[in-house]
Design a protein around this nucleic acid. Structure first.
Length: 544
DNA sequence: GTCATAACGTA
DNA sequence: CGTACGTTATGACC
């Protein structure tokens, strides 16, 4: 967990605290009210880094509270642990607070930070054995802990934004919102809150008498899918047109507003990466979330233009893995067909389409290709034929045939997917290529819905999680190589299968080379890891 | 203020 | 009846 003020995991050494460490801890904690970037964190980190457990949670100005996390993401509530393993008690940090504060029975404790360190010290004895048992030492010590420092550096660096451009976008989106809402109001003859699904339900289904959509808890859905349906059924009702324009523009404006507020004094945005949020081992990004910046729509892509190269640097470089999850699926399943497709560098979806539809690759139409693409990605999520039929707007029969033909041709994929769930039911967990576990107790639930959800999660976790392992390993390699070569270029962002770097003058070729090498070598799969690289002065321009 | 819900952006 | 997230607004509640 990257070392920032609002989300902290401390790595506490196993040996007893010496006076110096104690002082660092106390100083570290007292600085938590400082601005976002606290330089002492680096010192604190270095003093504390090493062996130990992962302690995560919330920080306020008097205490760190929270839970301990195993490398495989199992977490242990400190309240529970303290009762069972320590002679400690926990009390609410404040009246009505849902945070807990550790309290030692000993009275002569210098500071909350020291208390916390003491707690971790004792708890570490309890967990050290389990770490070994689970074969998770390498995952923690060789991957997550080294990554933590890298994430801290990325957060400290931040990414430069063009605030003037940001403000112009804000104005543009606001104008669209004003336009769309006034037209929408004119059509229905009154002003409502277009952002309220409840009020929309009244207008759409009661007043305009449009056909009922998918049922949800509170009535009928007004989500994008439902509106698209209604558009078709009504032949493009003008209210719907304006509502959809309003939705798009407000979403974009919210994103822009969030970014605007997040720009710090250095003209850059410093996200926080959370190493312990996602059950699969992915990172998450928060405050602001830079892992969900729009890219699909033209208007949305304009937001990526505001992320720019900062002073002293020459350009941004993005590097992403192409089709990592499908490659991991090919590797894990050992499917000869998929593996040879990747080895020969074919257009994957065209290749698969040719086999499923029984035509030569050059005769795969774009409609066929997009069906195959949807299905291939869907498989990674445990998609059903019903789900596929809905997504592609085709009859269930056709979807079923499509899937059957897929599995006829790529049988090892089906066997693998089945095997994963079966093994997980037996073990209680799934594993990634680096041995990261995800526990899925619901696999044996009596509740069918819960059980099937767990089954889909079990299908997905080794794939998504292995992809996370791979890019994390790549980040450690990239960081090490940048430093080994004495380069000034630096990593700024990670977006699951993509890295964004800021390239110092004259370092472009060296950086591209090492990024390709390190990302390509982050795993030894039976298929190559393809990396595509883009360059530009903005994230948009560098993207591809 | 806190909470659940609906919605929607990304991989 | 497709996985994994984080953020925002609304509306009900305390």
């Amino acid at each position: 967990m990257a070392l920032v003020t609002n989300s902290v995991a401390a790595y506490v050494p196993l040996p007893e605290l010496d006076a110096e460490t104690e002082q660092v801890l106390a100083g570290w904690l007292s600085d938590l009210d400082a601005p976002k970037v606290v330089h002492d964190f680096k010192e604190a980190y270095k003093a504390l880094a090493g062996r130990g457990l992962h302690l995560a949670g919330e920080v306020d100005d008097t205490a760190i509270s929270g839970y301990l996390i195993q490398p495989d993401r199992r977490s242990y509530d400190l309240a529970d642990l303290s009762q069972h393993h320590l002679r400690m008690s926990l009390a609410p940090a404040a009246a009505g607070s849902n945070q807990l504060q550790l309290q030692l029975e000993e009275e002569d404790v210098a500071s909350p930070a020291v208390m916390e360190a003491f707690a971790a010290l004792q708890l570490s004895d309890h967990f050290a054995g389990q770490l070994v048992e689970r074969g998770a030492n390498q995952l923690l010590g060789g991957l997550e802990l080294p990554l933590s420092e890298i994430l801290a550096e990325m957060e400290l660096a931040g990414i430069a934004v063009d605030t003037e451009k940001l403000d112009r976008l804000l104005d543009d989106f606001s104008a669209t919102i004003a336009q769309a809402s006034s037209e929408a109001f004119a059509i229905i003859g009154k002003e409502i809150n277009l952002g309220s699904p409840k009020q929309l339900q009244v207008v759409l289904f009661d007043e305009l008498g449009l056909p009922k959509t998918k049922k949800i808890k509170t009535g009928y859905s007004t989500d994008a899918d439902a509106l698209a349906d209604l558009m078709v059924k009504t032949g493009g009702h003008p209210f719907l047109v304006n509502l959809m324009a309003y939705r798009d523009a407000t979403k974009l404006r919210q994103t822009v507003e969030g970014l605007r507020k997040a720009v710090s004094d250095d003209g850059r945005v410093h996200t926080t990466y959370v190493q312990t949020a996602a059950a699969t081992g992915r990172l998450s990004s928060t405050n602001p979330n830079l892992q969900n910046i729009p890219i699909r729509s033209e208007e949305g892509r304009r937001i990526r233009e505001v992320f720019t190269v900062g002073p002293g640097y020459e350009m941004l470089l993005t590097a992403d893995y192409s089709q990592v999850e499908m490659r991991i699926m090919a590797h894990l399943s050992g499917d000869e067909g998929l593996i040879s497709a990747f080895r020969e560098g074919e257009d994957l979806h065209r290749f698969v389409g040719a086999h499923i539809f029984g035509v030569p690759p050059e005769e795969v139409t774009s409609a066929m290709r997009s069906k195959v693409k949807a299905m291939s990605y869907g498989l990674v999520y445990g998609l059903s034929s019903f789900g596929l039929s809905k997504q592609l707007a085709i009859p269930v029969d056709e979807a079923r045939t499509l899937m059957r033909d897929y599995f006829d041709r790529f049988g090892a994929v089906r066997d693998y997917l089945r095997g994963v769930v079966e093994q997980a039911r037996k073990d209680g967990f799934t594993s990634t290529i680096e041995g990261r576990r995800r526990y899925l107790p619901d696999l044996s639930s009596d509740n069918r819905q819960l059980r099937e959800m767990a089954e889909r999660a079990a299908l997905n976790a080794p794939i998504q999680g292995s992809a996370a392992d791979i890019i994390k390993k790549a980040m450690i390699g990239v960081d090490a190589e940048l430093k080994a070569q004495g380069l000034k270029s630096r990593m700024l962002l990670q977006v699951h299968d993509e890295l964004v770097l800021e390239v110092a003058p004259g370092e472009r070729d060296a950086v591209e080379k090492l990024v390709r090498e390190q990302m390509g070598a982050a795993a030894d799969l039976s298929v190559p890891l393809d990396v595509s690289v883009g360059i530009g002065v903005s994230w948009h321009e560098a993207g591809h």
